[in-house]
């Protein structure tokens, strides 16, 4: 019984701590490096997670509570945010701001 309970706890923890892969691109599909990706709950915003050369950041979704929203920002682009997806990967396209 204890083993089953421990396994259930492990599975629950693994589900909570599994990071979301966010790929950030511009409108032409080019990856955006150093975009800031945040996980947000009703009252907390995570630290920024920067995208790499491929435009990818891995964002933990448990920030004291489960994140409700994800926001993406990069200077020169219009920032955005959206509901935390149920999938483990998501692509986001940022629009360049008018100069």
């Amino acid at each position: 019984m204890k083993i089953i309970f421990s396994l259930m706890l492990c599975l629950l923890f693994a589900g909570c701590s599994s990071p979301l892969q966010v790929m950030v691109k511009d409108e032409e599909g080019r990856p955006i490096q150093n975009a800031e990706v945040y996980a947000i709950s009703l009252s907390i915003t995570s630290e920024p997670h920067l995208t790499n050369k491929k435009g990818i950041a891995h964002v933990p979704l448990f920030i004291g509570q489960q994140a409700r929203w994800i926001s993406v920002a990069k200077e020169g682009y219009a920032g955005t945010f959206f509901d935390t997806p149920k999938t483990k990967k998501i692509e986001v396209a940022l629009k360049q701001e008018a100069q």
Binding site: S41, L42, S43, I44, T45, E47, P48, I63, G64, Q65, A73
Partner: peptide, 25 residues
């Protein structure tokens, strides 16, 4: 909303606003 967390550096943060709700923290 009840939260427990570790505080973070100011330079990693950004300012937020709400328009419908007041926050009592």
């Amino acid at each position: 909303v009840v939260d427990e967390y570790d505080t973070k550096p100011v330079d990693e943060g950004r300012l937020e606003i709400h328009r419908k709700y007041m926050d009592l923290q």
